[in-house]
């Protein structure tokens, strides 16, 4: 037990130190095994719960608006690529370079025997130019028609590709939803496993306590006064106290449900008086389990009372159960 307690203390201190180590180091102690890892995780979650004591402060709407705007700008470098891939039509640029005006002239000119040098100028004989100029307009229009047909074909292809991209996007979105559902399902299963692990850890702790050779055991019995019957004669319980007189575990049965406003309270009775160990309620037929790592020094008795005020600082209601004398199992 001492080793375990010491390990737990080290885990807590390590979790606190890990807070200073940076946001991605939370939960930080060295994990030697799964139990230690689980312990570290539990205390990390304890730290994560602390701020819930604070009254929430809802931010102004402009904060969220500004954040979402920053997200958009933060994602801007990726945007052109994605938008371009998804929406840009298929390339139609090849249509543009068709030399519409020069084509008739070039077609009419004789094929040069050798490539023109840079310093040479293409000179068209005046007669040839005159013939070219006098050709019917019909002859000069066929490249335009060809270009228009090519442009239309490209446009059609673009529309088709665009519709294909849209269909693929819908498929991707559908698959993404499916993936999210599956992830959610698997995470639910993981959460259940985690819960079972926690329960197992609790059970292990209780088991090690109640089976410890030096554990002190005391039955909790209904309190009877001379001439007065017990308030709840059917109530029973057992208290286990570890050898360190700090860690204890109690199980109670047969307590009746209380009326609204009332609560059962557990008291540790020491020389200095009764110290409250907390309040609890009861459900019909359901056993109650209580445990803690601490018991006041000098505790000589344990008492369960029924109080009208759950915040009562001293026992004032009827006594329901009282621990009989402790005895040691060996």
């Amino acid at each position: 037990m001492n080793d375990e307690a010491q390990a737990e203390d080290l885990t807590i201190l390590a979790a606190l130190e890990a807070l200073e180590g940076g946001i991605d180091a939370s939960g930080g102690p060295a994990r030697s095994d799964e139990t230690a890892e689980m312990m570290a995780r539990l205390y990390t979650e304890v730290l994560g719960l602390v701020p819930y004591e604070l009254e929430p402060v809802m931010p102004a709407a402009r904060v969220k608006a500004s954040l979402m705007a920053r997200l958009t700008s933060a994602a801007a470098p990726e945007t052109p690529e994605v938008v371009g891939d998804e929406t840009r039509p298929a390339p139609v640029a090849p249509v543009a370079p068709i030399p519409v005006a020069a084509e008739p002239v070039r077609a009419a000119a004789p094929t040069p025997a050798a490539p023109l040098r840079a310093s040479q100028e293409m000179r068209i004989p005046p007669r040839m130019a005159a013939v070219a100029a006098s050709r019917p307009a019909r002859a000069r229009r066929w490249p335009l028609a060809l270009a228009a047909m090519l442009a239309l074909a490209m446009l059609g292809l673009s529309v088709w590709l665009y519709s294909q991209v849209g269909a693929q996007q819908a498929t991707i979105a559908s698959l993404r939803n499916e993936l999210a559902r599956e992830r959610s399902r698997s995470e639910g299963a993981i959460a259940k496993v985690r819960q079972l692990e926690t329960d197992s850890l609790d059970l292990t702790e209780k088991f090690s306590l109640v089976t410890s050779p030096a554990v002190l055991v005391s039955p909790m019995r209904p309190v009877e006064r001379p001439g007065q019957p017990a308030v709840q004669p059917g109530a029973r319980g057992v208290l286990f106290v570890a050898a360190d007189h700090q860690h204890w575990y109690m199980t109670l049965r047969g307590l009746q449900p209380v009326a609204a406003g009332q609560a059962y309270k557990l008291w540790f009775v020491a020389d200095t008086g009764a110290v409250s160990a907390g309040s609890f309620s009861a459900q019909p037929g359901a056993p109650i389990e209580l445990s803690s790592q601490h018991m006041p020094a000098g505790t000589k008795g344990v008492l369960v009372t029924l109080e009208a005020d759950a915040q009562a600082s001293a026992p004032s209601g009827p006594e329901i159960l009282r621990a009989a004398s402790f005895y040691e199992i060996s």
Binding site: P51, L54, P56, M58, V63, K64
Partner: peptide, 8 residues
Amino acid sequence: YAGTLLAL
């Protein structure tokens, strides 16, 4: 979580 985080 904004309410809790802002309170913190």
